[in-house]
Amino acid sequence: MSEASLVVVRGLRRDFDISRPWLNRLFEGQRRLFLRAVDDVSFEIAKGCTFALVGESGSGKSTVARMVVGLLPPSDGEVTIDGISMQSASDSGSRQKLRRRIQMIFQDPYASLNPRWRVSRVIAEPINTFGLLKGEAVTKKVGELLTLVGLHPDDGDKFPHEFSGGQRQRIAIARALAAHAEFIVCDEPTSALDVSVQAQILNLMRDLQKEFGLTLLFISHNLAVVRHMADRIGVMYLGRVVETGDSRALFARPRHPYTRMLLDAVPDLDMSGRQRTPVAGEIPNPINPPSGCTFHPRCPQANERCRREIPAMIDGVACHAVEEGRAG
């Protein structure tokens, strides 16, 4: 597995300092306060495959995405892409070359394009920065990219506000492909879009993945979208991966109680009337997470051990009940 893996994430952790300002702490006698957004997250992505992280708000999935591309330094752990560490200083030279091969598509297409720039300039920026092409060739390449994502080459002369949300996401995809990226992190790329536009974008992404052999890290809260896009899936809850596995298997036989609950909460569009357990409770405040397994207050199978001890990831599931064979 490790040999074919393009991306390897090991023991990723991220703490955010949420303390009051220094002067307030001094006078109010408060201690520094940290929020652990991501804790001990590990996964691998094989070349040309799609790995999806799915979870609700506060699960830390977007924080993982930002750490993987290097927008956010991890508090601990390491991200290795094609054998080059994103953290260690010794790799800093090769990391600069690596940047060209990593791109990201963001959630909000209204914020991810500079509103004062013409679209052609937005798309050309990676090409120019990495010095891939010069002069006329850049213009030609931008036109090709626009055509590739289903827009017109002349659209490059317009400003982002002249486009709809779906079209802007196409522009963002064109920018991601401009420097021949191999690994693209997609952070909720369709959650701001209408369903029919979402279908267009998801189809486009799949087509482009096949055409260019892209490796994708796909972040989403929508299980059905994840099911449609991913080869492998990691389910996150309060900063930890609770279950990971092959997409089909995970949806067919969810093992972690949280995965089961999440699947049961998805509205039943087939109107099959399948039997579902009602969902209980809400995600606790991550500033003050529950002890042991953070899911235990909502878990029907929780016992004393779950309240005390953090479950280890065994065979793709981090759950005491599964480990002990208590889960149905």
């Binding site: 927008l71 940047r99 990201m104 959630q107 914020a111 991810s112 509103p115 920065t129 990495f130």
Partner: peptide
């Protein structure tokens, strides 16, 4: 905090 700045940082500017 907007992502067009993140995109520019990703390119390594």
């Amino acid at each position: 905090g907007k992502d067009y700045v993140s995109a520019a940082r990703l390119v390594g500017l």
